[in-house]
Amino acid sequence: MNVSLKRIQAIIVKDYKEFSRNYAISVMILFPLLFAFMYRSDGAEQATMYAFVINFSLAMLTSFVQACLIAEEKERNTLRSLMMTPASMLDVLIGKSALVFIISAAVLALSTYIFGYDTSNMMVLVAAIGISILLYTAVGTICGLYSKTLIEASLSIFPVLIIFTMGPFALVFEEDYPFVKVLRYLPSSQLSELVAALEIGAATNELVMPLVIISIWAIVLTVISFVLYKKRLMDR
C-alpha cells in the first residue's frame, strides 16, 4: 500500500485548522498541564501521582481529541469524501493520527516538566509514553469511527477515561476480590508499574515486561482501528 507524504501533510494541515477552530476540543490541552500543576509532589507518592497524571492525560487528551476529530468529519460527511479520494487507508490514518501524536507528545513533555518528575532512565519512560500515545490514538480512532456525532464521540471516551485511569487504583482491592487482578494487565496499570519501577531504580530487564504488554495493546488496538476503517470504507 503506497504512502504519500504530501497527502499525509495535507491531512495534518486540514486537521490542525479544524482543531484550532474548535475550542471545545483544543481546550483539552490545558487539562494535563493543570493536573500536573495540581498534583506535583516531591514525596513518596510522586511516582503514583505522576502515573495518574499521564494516564488521565492520555485518555482525556489523546483519545478524546482523536475521537472528536474523526467524529466531526463523520458528522459533516467529509470523512466519506476523504475515503473516496486517492488517499490510501494508511495516508488517512497516519495523517489523522500524526497531529494528535505531536500535540500529545508536546503536552505530556511539558506536563512532566511542570510536575517535576525525573528519572535516571528517561529513554525507557519516553518509549513507554510514546507507545501509549499510539495506543490511545488507536482507542480514539475506534471511538470516533463508531460514533455518528461529536456528542457521541465525547460520551464514548468516558468509559475509557474511567477504566484506564482508575484501573490502577482498583488494584488495592485485589486481595479481597481476586477478579480485580485482571486490571493489572491494563496498559495504564502497566505504565504505573513502569513508573514505580523507574522510581526505585529497577534494572532494565525488569522494565521489559511492562513495555511488552503496552506494545501488545498498541498493536492490537491499531489493527482493530485499521479493520474498522476498512469496514467503513467497504460500507460507503
Rank of each mutant, 00 (worst) to 15 (best):
E152H: 03
K181H: 05
L171Q: 09
P187Y: 12
P178R: 13
E152D: 09
L161N: 08
L183D: 02
D176C: 02
E174T: 01
I157R: 08
F173T: 03
E175H: 02
Y177K: 09
D176H: 07
A153G: 15
S154W: 15
P159Y: 03
E174M: 13
Y177V: 12
A153L: 15
V172W: 06
F173C: 02
Y185D: 10
P159W: 02
I163Q: 08
F169W: 05
L171A: 08
I162E: 04
G167V: 07
F179G: 01
A170V: 07
F158K: 10
V160M: 11
A170K: 04
L150Y: 06
P168W: 06
A153K: 11
P159M: 06
D176E: 13
S154K: 14
L155H: 03
I151H: 05
S156A: 15
F164D: 12
T165A: 07
V182I: 15
V182G: 09
S156P: 00
V172N: 02
P168H: 09
L171G: 01
L186V: 07
G167C: 08
L150P: 01
S154R: 14
I162M: 07
M166Q: 08
V180C: 04
D176K: 14
V160K: 02
Y185S: 14
I162L: 10
P168V: 13
L186Y: 04
S156K: 09
K148W: 04
I157A: 12
V180W: 01
E174K: 06
E175P: 00
P178E: 14
L171F: 03
L171P: 00
F164T: 11
D176L: 12
M166A: 11
P187N: 14
F173E: 05
L155F: 14
A170I: 01
T149K: 06
F179K: 10
K181R: 14
Y185Q: 14
F179Q: 15
Y177Q: 10
F158W: 11
A170M: 11
G167R: 04
